[in-house]
Computed example of a mutant assay.
Amino acid sequence: MEATFPFNVRVYGILINEQKELLVSDEFEHGINFSKLPGGGLEYGEGLRDGLKREFLEECQAEVTVGEHFYTTDFFVQSAFSKNQVISVYYRVSLVQPLNLEFREKPFDFEGQTGEVKQSFRWIPLSRLQPEDMTFPIDRHVIKLIVENPGRLL
């Protein structure tokens, strides 16, 4: 009998602007609000860097250059949406062209959006960044690493 391994591989980008602010995505999906870094699930046959470029195009309508690897999950986390184990990989990214998005000031400001899936973006200054700004445990861990050593990203 062949074993199956229910892994969910995800890839995320750490984008910091010239004002030393981190780009955060606020989303509503599956009936819940959550805050995370831009990115998402890897598709079959896709490499990590290509997957991250695709995710930025889908979510932010932006082309990015994928830079230095920052972190890969090194502890067990079960998906909030399934029984799969989540493995997340984080890279520093830079923009090829400026973002053409409407930025919000408050979390979960989906004004004008309808439907079952909603998304908005905001910038959080690194000086005010906290793990609690994120919803999921791996993202919180990554934010903790950024807060403890912001110079690693600047």
Rank of each mutant, 00 (worst) to 15 (best):
R10N: 12
T4Q: 11
V24P: 07
E18T: 14
F5E: 08
G41R: 02
E63L: 14
S120H: 06
S94A: 15
E148P: 01
L101N: 00
C60Y: 05
T4G: 11
G31P: 03
E29Y: 09
K118R: 12
F76R: 13
T135W: 01
L153W: 13
G39C: 04
L129I: 04
D74H: 14
H30P: 04
T73N: 05
F7E: 04
V96H: 07
L52Q: 08
E63R: 13
C60G: 02
E132V: 14
F34D: 09
A3M: 06
G115C: 09
L153Y: 12
G115I: 12
I124K: 01
Q19P: 02
R152T: 08
G51S: 15
T135R: 05
D133C: 13
S79T: 09
Q19E: 08
R128S: 14
L95Q: 05
G41W: 01
K106E: 14
G13D: 03
T73S: 15
P38M: 06
K36I: 09
K83V: 07
E105W: 10
G39H: 09
P125G: 10
P38S: 06
G51K: 01
L154R: 00
N84E: 10
T114W: 04
A3Q: 10
V64S: 00
V11M: 07
Y44R: 03
R54M: 13
L57H: 05
D74N: 14
